[in-house]
Design a protein around this nucleic acid. Structure first.
Lengths: 325, 325
DNA sequence: GTGATCTGAGAAAAGCTTTTACCAATCTCT
DNA sequence: AGAGATTGGTAAAAGCTTTTCTCAGATCAC
């Protein structure tokens, strides 16, 4: 304790926190000595009193971390300046495990909880609606009157298709995931709206093999082939690119392929590297973090769903020029 | 507080913790009422007294989470039963950020810290050697007298090569990452030891494109071609498989390809799915978690480097039969 | 010179739990 | 029946900060 080292007991607190009245030379001296002995206040004791633990919990059921990691990075990035640390709890769609983790976090007096997942239209297997701490949902379905952040898949899809149109493509097919996915329907909707495409939408699964197979199907049909493929995610796009290469179709000269997700591990390693849509998950995490902090501090936050815009990442799988900065 | 609801103040504590002497009916009654009102003790207050926060910090510089996520899953898995929660701090090789996170964790009185990374032979950009909390290193270089867990890459590589030999391959080439990597040298060493291979070792980078290019190099050379490729990671293996297919070489009929890492996102999506070596990172995390807990509880732990065995994952890129269970 | 104001710093309480000490009442044994 | 042991429970302290209260001394005004 700095008190022992210096002179007093509670004076030290006031000195270090710049509160209370005291001589400036005393304040400085306490601060100096505290710095010298490397004194750091015990956050537990502080939290006990202030009812703030400067801790939040992040709950996720996304095992691979495809979505959670960027979100986590954003949260951490936004909150580290406020001295807030993040508990990460990976629950594998296991309600019992989820409850254990939630209870553990509540015991530790987290200031708030952010729930995140791998699907916009699914709930986590645990009810967070009546907790006495604020809850924010990020990239997962929230409850009534909650604050939810999600990507604007419609706008993202529009971005993709408009880009294809802009670089001169007209016969744009859409190869995507299972129709049960909300984002699939939303992206397909935007695909239909932009330009009057008459190419089919091929629903399948989120796998490279499906992208591969879908290209087989498209190229086996009689008549003109598509000159562009808008794929529902980067893995499908990658499978499609591979299938096209095997058929001797050149990407991007003959066919443009665009992905979705900007999962660098897939998008950047594809040959040619994929032009794709980034959901800006880090920014999403940042905003979720700031929001849960605001709620924890009692600042009012309008409930509702906030859609964050996606961003087009231009690489080489579409051709076209990189838009000027 | 349960005390108010029931009868006393400190009696409640003893009742709930099964300590002290008291009538069994009193104990039961307190427990029942506590359960009814959903009372849960404040971990902050408890931690303040017991000097245990039931919290540990996980520090990583692995942005993609390729290594961190399995390790984290193992840690969490091992510690959730002990009521321990995990702070995840992603530091991007930024010493200042790392220090901030470490300080924040120490302020919050973590019971210990686990440092993990993406390379066995690199340190995190922060010194953890003189903290007053235990530190365990997992999949990153530790300091003198520390406890370090790492995969046994030599054994893993032997597993891979022995498997290729067992299924009848004789001309096994090794395509791997940069020679500066300790694991690259260790795997190459094991490769040389097992059988008397005279095929070259091709050092490059950790990318699919390198796997692709390396196959070009090998097949451009005059003379007999390899009948198996032992690749330094799954991405390289995937690039190699793609290159072989483009050359009309059949995998696994003509050439067996084996990877390393068992990064499912790559290994399982390759056509054919990759036989590969799993570093058992989850188990590594589990052991690291239990070790840091032991240290936190004052139990003695022998310092040193612990090598954990890898496991062969047989899929279809090598041919051969799946070993009987 | 004396009452009022101000200043700098310490004392104490609160926050929640666990643990030790303690006390009154009941039991046990001779 | 009375000394000693046992039992069931409460009171209090400790752990570390922050905040509010208090107080002694100094300064100021008249």
């Amino acid at each position: 304790m700095a008190a022992a080292a210096a002179v007093s007991i509670s004076t030290a607190s006031k000195a270090l926190n710049d509160t209370g009245r005291m001589g400036s030379e005393t304040r400085e001296r306490v601060k100096r000595i505290a710095a010298e002995i490397g004194y750091r206040p015990n956050a537990l004791a502080r939290g006990l009193l202030s009812k703030r633990s400067f801790t939040i919990g992040l709950l996720t059921n996304d095992t691979y971390g495809r979505f959670t990691l960027p979100v986590m990075a954003g949260i951490s990035d936004a909150l580290v300046d406020h001295g807030v640390s993040v508990f990460l709890c990976a629950i594998e769609d296991d309600p019992a495990l989820a409850q254990i983790h939630v209870d553990a976090m509540l015991d530790k007096q987290v200031d708030g909880i952010i729930a995140t997942g791998k699907r916009l239209d699914r709930r986590l297997p645990v009810d967070l609606s009546n907790l006495h701490v604020p809850v924010v949902y990020a990239f997962t379905e929230g409850t009534q009157n909650s604050v939810t952040f999600r990507s604007d898949d419609e706008q993202g899809a529009r971005l993709a298709v408009e880009w294809l149109v802009k670089i001169g493509r007209r016969r744009i097919a859409h190869i995507t995931g299972p129709q049960e996915f909300f984002s699939v329907r939303e992206r397909a909707g935007a695909y239909h709206e932009v330009g009057g495409h008459r190419e089919p939408v091929l629903y399948g699964v989120w796998a490279e093999s499906w992208g591969h197979e879908a290209v087989e199907q498209l190229w086996k049909r009689p008549g003109e082939k598509p000159d562009a493929l808008f794929c529902g995610n980067d893995q499908i796009a990658r499978g499609a690119v591979d299938a096209l290469r095997e058929r001797g179709v050149k990407v991007p000269q003959d066919v443009s392929v665009i992905g979705f997700d900007n999962w660098e591990i897939v998008a950047a390693q594809t040959r040619p590297p994929l032009t794709t849509v980034d959901m800006e998950l880090k920014e999403l995490g940042r905003q979720a973090g700031l929001t849960v902090l605001a709620l924890a501090e009692g600042r009012p936050v309008e409930p509702g769903v906030r859609k964050l815009p996606c961003r087009l990442i231009v690489r080489q799988s579409c051709g076209g020029k990189v838009p000027k900065e």
